[in-house]
Design a protein around this nucleic acid. Structure first.
Length: 855
RNA sequence: GCUCGGGUGGCGGAAUUGGCAGACGCGCUAGACUUAGGAUCUAGUGCCGCAAGGCGUGGGGGUUCGAAUCCCCCCUCGAGCACCA
């Protein structure tokens, strides 16, 4: 690039001034309406800022600056989601503590983000790993515990041997870890679990009112996976047992030819006949060994074994064999299904393989169905009074009949599973729980005045080990934050325990039931002292991001997670922007916590993020995902050094629609850089002083007025609709026109700068100041357009003959239909196409077009 | 396999309710200024054609005076879900 405006100097200058003046500090109160813009806060990775980060942040910054200029009191904060596995793995490799590593990374991220010149209130910066932050994360956990929503359970969990960590359902993709793509397996472990399923219905209903991308709503909907069906009881022949199945297609009840139990189903052992015992046991063992990848691989053949037992059809009394097969999942519905091979793909495949009977009971009206026939249809072969009914009606009839016999009921099921909340890791929030023995729990529970009563749930939470019970005791808030202790060794144990479990001095404690005091084990015995062990698991990374939008409102509040006055003023974010990869993880968990917190009286809002937007991904120059191995990574520091932050901001917004996936183009940034250079040169002459083109007496002609005012209109509308690429192109159109003018009114220059300011704030501030601006351009009201200056006297009307454009006319905007048609016919080129033709129809669209239909 | 969302010049992308397809930018061509140009400025730039004109929004069909836009079929790319009964 040739000569450049001094962006390096200007950008540093204005970033310093904004900080010194506190230009973007947000305070509660005043008459202005509030506007809270939130970015998904970054995980400060060691790699530093990625070129993708500034995309979302610039978008939110444009909105923040625009809204401020439109008279809103704007809150635009930033912080760090800094717990997480990479810092811990880094510690394992280097021995540097995650704390130190994280602090360094935050330092780097902060300085890189500051170089972008965002209108952020840095006094509100938060960090999920700060004690003052996570004490409230722990407090929220205790509230969940108190309300019976946090409990422990021995359950099969996803265990990743490579990461030596337990993963949540959401963190496992096709049998591999989301992070690192390592294989995972099933393992029985005692785990903390949050009862998110209790909120399934609310989380589903709440989606409707959210202004979110459709695809994200659909993803959450599918994840919650509500289905309506029936539970149907099948008696087991020669037994008092019954098998309850769940089905959404009870209309196919008469087509049942066998039942299937999940291998883990508790009845399997009880009903299997002796003759089949070995085969079933072998099969169950085989299933247990398999990872879910193997088990759920769709391509694989169906497998299963016969139990030797039979069930009794609740309506026909017919005997149907009971099988065990791993295509039935233990964790959904009742873990047992009625198999209707004629009308279910999976049952059909299974029946084919094991030569089980197939009975057709539903089909299209009239024609014979091709099996398996899975859509709804009309009943056949189902018996008197049923044949001919459509599926929905048939379900109603079956429901009545089964209900009458006490053998069926309607039921709603969800795919959503409870949230596995403990991690066997070091770098996370310690779970503020103590474990005491059964003998100590009783007395402690009876101390009504004990601080340990503060978060005590109605139902005790306990686990059993070697025949002994251990009870969970919540720390009182006086003991928060429970600080993550310093340890030497960050390795998890092979047995799946947290590195914290090795810190015996921290784990083994004694608690004073009366006072809430806690001391290391080995103190003198006395009244009210009990032995206890701390919970060694930590919280998953999602915990801190579940409520950070609330912490920004009063980041320094020492008495509450969020100050009620601040919360009452700011409420929840009016706009939330971040990547689509969080569609079901962070966004579902945060909705759960926020709603829970709302129910216990913390935030006044029910939903945390009423309006959400996902920015797209910026691909490498070769059109593939940016990655070190491909060597197509663009370094933001480098770009800022070469072209300046304004150019980077402008370029990322100009690339294409904000939500789209788009490739980086290193030549494209030259284009926007040239635009900024041209803008600079329009204001500043060769000698470095304000250009002489600005004359107080200059008056813009109608064309200039029209372009200027339609630019104001378009920029306003485009910003509000997040169409930043077209807003910028309009700014280019405007500048292209202004450059043609021999002289300009200072006011015209100022309006141009105000329109530019949200996108390229540094250059706009600098030129604004040189144009005589006293206040920061960020604080000057955004210009409004004058409609009369856009709608000038004449409009262009296109003239078509048989739909083909032949000419265009300049006519007065208030011209009548007759006048325009007459002018159109009088047009020379049009006339040539009308010669010897008969006009059969005349189409007239006011101020737009004329179309002659001829023969 | 199922469910969504896309396919517009050499490239990124524009186009209220169906009403001038290709705004803006990149690139390219020619010219100017220059010792020089990967700087700047000027002009041009969808395709075919000397022109008149014709053809053009993944392909095919349809509705309409008029379709990138609406309807049907097909091709293709991307995302999500993936034995949830």
């Amino acid at each position: 690039m040739g000569k450049c405006y001094p962006f390096g100097e200007i950008e540093a200058k204005w970033q310093r001034i904004w900080e010194e003046r506190g230009t973007f500090r947000a305070r509660e109160g005043g008459d202005k309406p509030k506007y809270y813009v939130l970015d998904m806060f970054p995980y400060p990775s060691g790699a530093g800022l990625h070129i993708g980060h500034p995309e979302g942040y610039t978008a939110s910054d444009i909105l923040a600056r625009y809204r401020r200029a439109c008279g809103y009191n704007v809150l635009h904060p930033m912080g760090w989601d800094a717990f997480g596995l990479p810092a811990e793995q880094h510690a394992l490799q280097t021995g540097i503590s995650p704390k130190i590593n994280t602090d360094q990374n935050v330092e780097k991220f902060r300085s890189q983000i500051k170089r972008m010149g965002f209108a952020i209130d840095w006094e509100r910066e938060i960090n999920t790993t700060d004690e003052d932050y996570y004490r409230w994360t722990q407090w929220i956990f205790l509230q969940l515990f108190k309300h019976g929503l946090a409990f422990v359970d021995e359950r099969p969990v996803w265990w990743c041997p490579e990461l030596k960590a337990v993963l949540s359902n959401e963190e496992v993709i096709n049998g591999r870890s989301e992070r690192g793509n390592y294989p995972v397996e099933r393992k029985q472990l005692r785990q903390w679990v949050l009862r998110i399923t209790a909120y399934a219905e609310k989380l589903l209903d709440g989606l409707e009112r959210l202004d979110w991308p459709d695809s994200t709503k659909r993803q959450q909907q599918a994840w919650i996976g509500r289905s309506e069906g029936m539970e149907i009881d099948f008696a087991v022949e020669n037994s008092t047992k019954k098998i309850t199945v769940y089905s959404t297609r009870a209309d196919t009840l008469m087509g049942v030819t066998y039942l299937v139990l999940a291998p883990e189903h508790s009845l399997v052992e009880k009903i299997t006949t002796q003759a089949n015992g070995k085969a079933v046991a072998d099969y169950r063992r085989e299933t247990a060994r398999k990872g879910d990848l193997e088990r759920t691989d769709l391509a694989k053949d169906k497998s299963g074994v016969f139990t030797g037992a039979f069930a009794v059809h609740p309506l026909t009394g017919e005997k149907v064999p009971i099988w065990v097969a791993d295509y039935v999942l233990p964790s959904y519905g009742t873990g047992a299904v009625m198999a209707v091979p004629a009308h279910d793909d999976r049952d059909y495949e299974f029946a084919q393989k094991f030569h089980l009977p197939i009975r057709t009971v539903v089909g299209p009206q009239g024609a014979e169905p091709e099996l398996p026939f899975c859509p709804e249809g009309v009943l056949r072969n189902s018996g008197e009074g049923l044949d001919g009914l459509d599926s929905a009606a048939a379900r109603g009839v079956f429901l009545n009949r089964l209900e009458a016999k006490g053998m069926g009921r309607s039921a709603v099921k969800y795919k959503l599973r409870d949230w596995l909340f403990s991690r066997q890791r070091y770098w996370g929030e310690p779970i503020p729980i103590l474990w005491v023995s059964e003998e100590d729990y009783g007395p402690l529970k009876r101390m009504k005045d004990s601080p340990f009563q503060e978060f005590m749930p109605d139902e005790p939470v306990f686990f059993e080990e070697n025949g002994r019970r251990f009870y969970a005791i919540p720390l009182p808030s006086s003991q928060l934050p429970l600080v993550l202790p310093t340890v030497e060794d960050y390795r998890p144990s092979d047995g799946g325990e947290s590195p914290l479990s090795r810190a015996k001095w921290w784990i083994e404690v004694e608690v004073q039931g009366h006072t809430g005091e806690i001391r290391p084990a080995g103190g003198p015995p006395g009244d009210g002292w009990f032995r206890a062990s701390r919970e060694s698991n930590t919280m998953p990374q999602w915990a801190g991001s579940c409520w950070y939008h609330l912490r920004y409102l009063s980041p320094h509040c020492a008495t509450a997670a969020v100050d009620p006055t601040a919360e009452a003023y700011w409420g929840c974010p009016d706009f939330y922007i971040g990547g689509a990869e969080h569609a079901v993880l962070h966004l579902l968990y945060a909705r759960f916590w926020h709603r829970f917190l709302h129910e216990i009286g913390v935030p006044t809002t029910v939903e945390p993020y009423p309006k959400l937007f996902h920015q797209g991904i910026i691909l490498g120059e070769d059109g593939s995902k940016m990655s070190k191995s491909r060597g197509n990574v663009v370094n933001p520091d480098r770009v800022i050094g070469d072209y300046g932050a304004d150019a980077l901001r402008l370029y990322e917004m100009f690339l294409g629609p904000l939500e789209a996936m788009k490739p980086w183009d290193s030549r494209g940034i030259c284009g926007v850089s040239r635009f900024l250079q041209r803008a600079w040169s329009w204001f500043i002459g060769e000698d470095g002083t304000l250009s002489s083109r600005f004359r107080g007496d200059a008056e813009e002609n109608a064309l200039t007025q029209r372009i200027l005012h339609s630019s104001i209109k378009k920029v306003r509308e485009d910003i509000e609709e997040l169409r930043f690429n077209t807003a910028i192109s309009q700014l280019m159109v405007l500048l292209n026109h202004l450059q043609e003018l021999p002289a300009a009114a200072p006011e015209t220059g100022r309006i141009f700068l105000q329109l530019l300011a949200p996108f390229a704030p540094h250059i706009a501030e600098e030129l604004w100041e040189r144009m005589g601006g006293i206040r920061s351009i960020a604080e000057v009201p955004f210009p409004d357009y004058v409609p009369e200056k856009i709608a000038t006297g004449t409009v262009t009307v296109v003239v078509q003959v048989n739909g083909k454009v032949r000419s265009e006319l300049q006519v007065a905007s208030d011209a009548t239909r007759e006048e325009v048609l007459r002018l159109a016919q009088a047009d020379g080129i049009v006339g040539a196409h009308l010669v010897d033709r008969e006009i059969v129809k005349e189409i007239y669209v006011p101020n737009r077009l004329v179309n002659f239909v001829v023969r």
